[in-house]
Design a binder for these strands. Structure first.
Lengths: 223, 223
DNA sequence: TGTTAGTAACTGACTGGTCAGTTATGAAGA
DNA sequence: TCTTCATAACTGACCAGTCAGTTACTAACA
């Protein structure tokens, strides 16, 4: 009996390929999805692996632990946007309020349309269990974001464009509605047949309020 | 050999006592602590039991599951305060802005001093995994809280005390800083040696801003 | 006023399932 | 051929939920 070839598909594609450079991003993208849907604790690495098209062991070739994978997700989702915001705020010389408007609308757009909106919720939820993650987020995201707004406010106050408000509370009051929108969209939206949160309308109302709060000449001729 | 009495302490107190009515509250209080420290998923019922001074089995005599215990915690922490707020808002006839001030300061005080401040964070974190809990919270807490503020705004607008603002976005803009404060205090406070969030200062700044936004006659004589 | 039988509160060891992380093995590519 | 990338079966810890047994209390009866 001649030796029968044991593999029936000589033209079958290989069961897997080596793709050392593409893997990390794909894994992070898959992890972003799963963490967003389930939260950190309830997310299963097996599911991350399946969505990334690899096996669970492969995750551990690129990330030493679930925690580190989580941090990588956060970094990947937040840092590019933050750098964009810093560039936007730094590169302007004229009046400050229009810059503030553009920043708010940009963040609102992110909140309303991208997966990055789930990041604050994830960090908030896990801050107690990952103090170093909370510290990282506080240092790399919150502090920098606050810094952008604070310097903008200070410039506006110095030039006389803005009333002399207290900077720190005002920064927090500017940010709060955006943060709340991000959290809302990823926690409560679409419950009980409620209409979804209208983020643009909320932001426009907020900008209108800020105009009355920050600027010296309030246009009182509104009907 | 005469029969030695096997129990050496005839006056020893019993190892446990039957306390059918006190148990549920004590268990809920212990669970509140553990959930607040660890989050729902990472909280261990064994630890809840130890802090409540009972065994794990006893928890299941009073609550059918971890989920139901969680809901009981939420109800116990939120509903009394909500009823107080509704009473406060309903029992007034004069101008609306002082009522709004009192409501905001009351909530700020809760946020700054009580364990109830951790509840929003817990609900936000677990909303994805417990849709019915999110729906319960939305229906019983958020909708009612929004209702209190919305009717107050409408009364103020109708009487001419307030400018004719859009009610729904404005309610959200009023609530956002308080929600953010609650989340902040239980997630980021005391990180990196930062000073803790000054909730009263934030609320006073917010009230000042709302005065400019809502009232018709803005006192422009501020230095 | 004991004594005792009955009951409901309570305990804690156990189970079954889940899942993060490990490793023996093999295929792909140089 | 040898190294690297990847797999998939495996392990061990952890924990919600269970249940057979124990104990505090009570009420009926002596």
């Amino acid at each position: 009996m001649p030796d029968r070839v044991p593999r029936p598909e000589p033209e079958a594609p290989p069961r897997w390929r080596r793709r050392k450079d593409a893997r990390p991003q794909e894994i992070v993208a898959a992890a972003m999805d799963v963490f967003a849907e389930r939260g950190f604790a309830a997310a299963k690495l097996e599911e991350v692996a399946v969505r990334a098209g690899v096996s669970k062991g492969t995750l551990y070739l690129y990330f030493p632990s679930k925690d580190e994978l989580f941090k990588a997700v956060i970094r990947a989702a937040i840092l590019p946007n933050l750098e964009q915001a810093e560039a936007l705020a730094a590169a302007v010389a004229g009046p400050c309020f229009p810059v503030l408007e553009r920043l708010l609308r940009m963040v609102a757009h992110l909140v309303a349309t991208t997966r990055a909106a789930t990041i604050p919720r994830l960090v908030i939820a896990e801050a107690g269990n990952f103090p170093d993650l909370a510290a990282f987020y506080h240092r790399e995201v919150i502090r920098r974001g606050f810094g952008v707004l604070a310097s903008l406010l200070q410039r506006g106050i110095a030039s006389g464009e803005f009333r002399p408000v207290e900077v720190d509370p005002t920064v927090r009051l500017i940010v709060a509605p955006l943060l709340m929108s991000a959290v809302w969209r990823t926690s409560f939206d679409g419950l009980d047949g409620e209409p979804p949160l209208d983020v643009p309308a909320l932001v426009e109302a907020h900008i209108g309020n800020l105009r009355r709060v920050l600027l010296r000449d309030v246009g009182e001729g509104v009907p």
